[in-house]
């Protein structure tokens, strides 16, 4: 647990229900500026529900979401994005019938007013050269790894203060996963703050500063990534220890 005024994102007592099913039962976490924090957990532990609830995509039953000192609990996703937090969703979900150019353009929709969309775009194309090559191609024709890069670049186009990455390694070949994670680390070096949801525990703890383990909708374990990696308790938490 970290503390102090540095919290960029502060989530407390989050509860999400789907009808009678309680997906999240009072989970919370903090992310400090410049950190990579990873949220781990078995399938169905509620990781995606957690991110979706934080973003305002699914309604909260209880809890509080504070972004950089501002309470954004219950705000619509588009408002959350405008306030500086964005989500790169699970399964990439690029707009298959839009070109790479259009995917990036719509990612930068919130930056039109500030006038820095072009600068950010140049930066992204620089960082993901393959996207520059495929600029006028339909996003649906890209490979899985390229789509993941596009999804991350699209999320970064809004110049977020914090980006939530949901399962960026899902369904990708190991060497492609390595490339993606190198890029995630590079993003951090350029000042990005990242909340990373991953199933690949080892990889996630390798790049993260701190980690949380979600089990049955609650935080079962948390701590610095290196400690979690060494303790082996993550495995037990995965087994559903409450």
């Amino acid at each position: 647990m970290s503390s102090g005024p540095e919290h960029l994102l502060d989530v407390a007592g989050l509860e999400v229900r789907y009808g009678a099913i309680e997906a999240i039962r009072g989970a919370g976490l903090e992310v400090c500026k410049g950190e990579i924090v990873t949220l781990l957990g078995a399938n169905g532990a509620g990781k995606s529900s957690f991110l979706n609830a934080v973003m305002g995509l699914v309604p909260l039953a209880a809890g509080r979401v504070v972004l950089d000192g501002e309470d954004i609990t219950g705000e619509a996703p588009e408002t959350v994005v405008r306030r500086g937090m964005t989500l790169c969703p699970e399964g990439r979900r690029v707009f298959a019938n839009l070109t790479v150019r259009e995917n990036l353009a719509i990612g930068g929709a919130t930056r039109r007013r500030t006038g820095d969309a072009a600068t950010i775009l140049a930066d992204m194309l620089d960082r993901f050269p393959v996207l520059a090559e495929r600029h006028d191609q339909m996003a649906g024709t890209l490979s899985g790894g390229e789509q993941q890069m596009l999804a991350i670049a699209r999320a970064m186009m809004s110049a977020p203060r914090i980006v939530l990455l949901d399962e960026p390694s899902l369904g990708l070949a190991p060497q492609v996963v390595d490339t993606i994670f190198e890029m995630i680390v590079a993003l951090q070096h350029h000042g990005a703050t990242i909340l990373l949801v991953e199933q690949n525990v080892d990889l996630a703890l390798d790049v993260a500063d701190r980690g949380y383990v979600l089990a049955s909708g609650r935080v079962a374990l948390s701590g610095p990534a290196s400690e979690l990696q060494a303790s082996g308790e993550v495995e037990r938490a995965y087994m559903g220890r409450d």
Binding site: L57, F95, N97, L98, E102, A109, R154
Partner: peptide
């Protein structure tokens, strides 16, 4: 942008909102 957003919304409305589109 609004036009592209409309085409995007036709493909995936929730993700379109994640682009900050109202």
């Amino acid at each position: 942008i609004l036009g592209i957003a409309m085409r995007a919304a036709a493909l995936d409305f929730p993700v379109t909102r994640l682009m900050g589109i109202n």
